[in-house]
Design a protein around this nucleic acid. Structure first.
Lengths: 333, 333
DNA sequence: CTGAAAGCGCTTACAG
DNA sequence: CTGAAAGCGCTTACAG
């Protein structure tokens, strides 16, 4: 890599010092028009661009944001990153993107590295493995602005932008009930994972609110992946569930269910309507599932990034606030 | 944001100068064990991390790579970025991610900005709008390592990692022929866009090689989006095409075709098999299209990033070389 | 074993 | 209108 032109290089050509060059290029009133024109011309010829690293050092500002996602090759997170990217760029920030791959050790290393890179703020959706909150407390003590999105850790004093899973689930299940479905099953995730717990709670509240008896045989515990949906459906049938609709905790689960329904035949595919949380562009093309809750990923990214930049500017305080992003119930048929 | 601990802060506590602290922390042989232990302890207590910006300035190395994609909220690019990210991280680099949004002006700004940020190398998939190659020539003159991936500009002296669209198309269409399909139509994109031209060429070569007459009514020109697929299929039928298979230039086109086939009914959905280039995880779940060419996006990212890092290390020269990534024909039924 | 000097490229007071 | 000095935080010769 060739050495890039510096202020001094221009200075030598023009016959001034780097100080004057610096001022001339930034249209400082100190400098005469004639000089400015000359300096700019030479800068142009040399292909000069200010070294942002040097500038960062002198200003102690990098105009850089650190972003950590558990996965990037996932629609949901890719869309969130798109929202973050655009919002950041529009406000003059660049983003350094890191991926934790659901690994808490790696996440910690990324966090430390980003801090060492002097990012002005952090946006993170924590990995599922994250238990130890030490790094976060360290970041808090450094008073580095940090905003959680989608997956947050409460109690650390940071703000979060998330989806209200419980409300979204309750609303969606109520919508099914209003459409005449009464025997609604739930293939859910583990109680100890927040989205598992909250989505189930929403499901239960909806039944309760509409005065529908909750039948134990209509609920299956499991995980969040395709296999869990596949096994979950078989389990549901085995334990005597005869639903006219199923609320699948995630969309991989809904896909797994689809596979099981196909295999088992028996009219399941026609008789059972499916609801899930989380969308894919292809849902509408394939008309499955029949209902879903759209999580506005891009909006989550925008909001989180806006909030972070406000914190950086001091227009907003880290305060354990939770900003809920609106979801949409979609009828896909 | 609080002021972070610096070498000087540690120096004051320990009663040495920053030079010795710097050496102690990096286990320089100059320093005694006792001092090292003490220094490290204090560093730990103060939560010291070296300021990477300062380090970058002194070494003129940022350990940072600039990445520009046309879109990030797209499966294909999200996977490529995943491949880049991991490869870069594993070799000690961070990535600054920019999105051109298919806008050549924005792309240019990003490129200049990344250079100003002193990234050690650039990875870019150019926007569809890019015509002017000035920035790229400037980058070339600066001898900044740059590798194109997926979409490249030939003739500038940079290396590229791409898919061999023509070969992949030819192979895939031949596979259809070998499976007994003879009347294969093509709903394609514009001739003046590389993938449009190459995929069509592959299609034609396959027919030729297998001695199948190319019928003009079996080819429809258009674009690369869903709407083009939708209109394309209707057009195909109108002009008298009666294919037993259709090669759709992109997967949005295949989806648009699906919509049209459904609307028109007439057994099309059952009688016509569809082939496309580019996959989605949901394809296998929904068994449509019946055949597709899998572009190994993650591999593209890895290869491009590996190549770039080699160029940075001087182990590879920018030399207009084209590295083709293998594609896979997938039978999805 | 420890430190004063010089430098990476830039900018901000402060002098002249 | 122009420049010498000092500093951002770090590291690398070079002295002692």
């Amino acid at each position: 890599m060739k050495k890039k032109a510096t202020l001094n290089d221009i200075a030598k050509v023009v016959g001034l010092t780097k100080v004057s060059i610096s001022k001339a290029l930034r249209d400082h009133p100190d400098i005469s028009e004639a000089t400015k024109v000359k300096v700019k011309k030479v800068a142009q010829e040399l292909g000069y661009r200010p070294n942002l690293i040097a500038r960062s050092l002198t200003f102690s500002k990098t105009r850089t944001l650190g972003v950590i996602v558990p996965k990037i090759a996932h629609n949901f997170f890719a869309h969130i990153v798109a929202g973050i990217q655009k919002t950041a760029n529009d406000q003059g920030y660049d983003i350094v993107l890191s991926v934790s791959d659901e690994d808490d050790k790696l996440e910690k290393r990324h966090l430390e590295n980003l801090v060492a890179m002097q990012v002005e703020g952090l946006l993170i959706s924590v990995s599922m493995a994250t238990k130890n909150t030490e790094v976060f407390e360290w970041i808090r003590s450094l008073q580095i602005p940090l905003v959680f999105f989608d997956r947050h850790i409460p109690g650390l004093g940071f703000n979060s932008v998330i989806v209200d899973d419980e409300a979204a689930s309750q609303d969606a299940v109520e919508q099914l009930i209003d459409r005449g479905m009464k025997n609604i099953a739930h293939i859910g995730g583990f109680e100890w994972v927040e989205i598992g717990r909250k989505r189930r709670a929403g499901y239960q509240k909806a039944l309760e609110k509409r005065g529908i008896e909750a039948r134990p045989e209509n609920v299956v515990d499991g995980g969040f992946g395709e296999l869990h949906g596949y096994n979950g459906f078989r389990q549901l049938i085995k334990q005597g569930g005869t639903p006219d609709a199923i609320f699948a905790v995630t969309y991989p689960v809904a896909l797994g269910m689809l596979k099981a329904m196909r295999e088992l035949g028996n009219g399941y595919l026609n008789d059972i309507r499916v609801l899930t949380i989380g969308a894919d562009e292809l849902f509408s093309v394939f008309s499955y599932p029949q209902y879903y809750v759209d999580q506005p990923a891009i909006t989550i990214g925008q909001r989180a990034c806006d909030l972070l930049i406000k914190e950086i500017h001091g227009d907003e305080q880290p305060d354990e606030k939770i900003f809920y992003v609106d979801t949409h119930f979609v009828e896909n048929c």
